[in-house]
Design a protein around this nucleic acid. Structure first.
Lengths: 193, 193
DNA sequence: CGTCTATTTGAATGTACTCAAAAGCGGTGG
DNA sequence: CCACCGCTTTTGAGTACATTCAAATAGACG
């Protein structure tokens, strides 16, 4: 149950077996069905979760009521509204399962305890946040300077296999374009081959 | 010299006078003239800096050779390519002073020492990174769902007074639009008043 | 099989870019 | 003090990128 989590953590810090046992103890496994919501806009994000199995989307509603996807999370990814979780303030994000999924969850008070009992964890989450920040920065750059067809090619290159698990509408909502336009882009690209 | 830095830090963690002295010791004041570069693409980011005075821009060159601004840093902001600094890998970003500026700098080895001697600092930078990440996420959302004129209004609302210190070209490069188009947006907005 | 949703296609429209030219503006040297 | 230079901003015409809306088509699923 914890093998994927351990692998993931070892990329950033090393924990002894005992330390890892201590680390993983406050996590509990939550199973969610497809289409089930884990977080709704306005709620306080009570969990931080590690995806053991499945696929989820983190999205928000823009002013016109359209859903825009901030990111997808599959096996090995973390999900939470970091802002809402860290400051325990209402979230602007929604989290929904796109497939039946299994998530290792930790609640806010337990995470605070973890920071105290296992100070290495502070470093772990600092480094992880820095990495996700760097990734978001690259995406921001891409969004500022590239046209939709390039961003699409970048997406399928960066996350191979992911597209197959998503509907075209989800991909379009991630790229920030209409699904009709994505359809046209795909048609254009397939012609070039 | 350290008053602004101390104020800034106290927003996140509390340090005793002694601890703050220990914290601030490895920082040195660097003065840079307008147009001077602090970091160039390809270099490893050797510093993390706190802006005491002045104004800088963090930008990169897109494929067409156009400069796009990731963010501006004025008094009270931190500057660095976090990715490059943390992993000591070549940067994709450039940092340039837009005004004569004064920056409190710390180098990578000294920061590592700081993490060890003053573990609270680990928390400080975790929290700071989370905040900047949340801010970037909001900007990404904005970029995905809003037109240029709305993003411009958002910008002047969010950073009042900043626009006056920047050329229109810099603002346009931040918004991800051409400076000609920004000119047209401003004209349109001024007519509405 | 029918129903519901997802995808494709086309036409019309809106948003933003490119290129070129003109106007404005600040600094510098004579 | 003014004339000139270089740089920024403005303006316009033409074009490219992307959206909206409506309708047709294709898939998925009970």
């Amino acid at each position: 149950m914890y093998t994927l989590l351990r692998e993931n953590i070892e990329k950033h810090i090393h924990l002894t077996d005992e330390e890892f046992a201590q680390f993983s103890a406050p996590f509990y496994l939550q199973k969610v069905k497809k289409k089930q919501m884990l977080l709704r806009e306005g709620e306080i994000c009570k969990f931080e979760g590690f995806v053991n199995k499945g696929c989820l989307r983190v999205y928000y509603l823009d002013e016109s009521g359209f859903e825009k996807v901030l990111y997808f999370a599959v096996e090995g990814w973390w999900i939470a509204d970091i802002d809402s979780f860290t400051n325990q303030t209402p979230s602007i994000l929604n989290v929904e399962a796109l497939e039946d999924s299994e998530i290792l969850m930790i609640t806010y008070p337990y995470k605070l305890i973890l920071y105290e009992t296992l100070p290495k964890v502070e470093k772990l989450f600092r480094v992880m946040t820095q990495k996700t920040h760097a990734a978001l920065q690259r995406r921001m750059i891409s969004s500022l300077s590239k046209t939709a067809d390039k961003r699409y090619l970048e997406f399928i290159l960066k996350y191979p296999q992911l597209e197959q698990r998503l509907s075209q509408q989800q991909v379009a909502a991630y790229l920030g374009i209409s699904h009709e336009f994505l359809s046209k882009i795909k048609k254009k690209i397939s012609k070039l081959r």
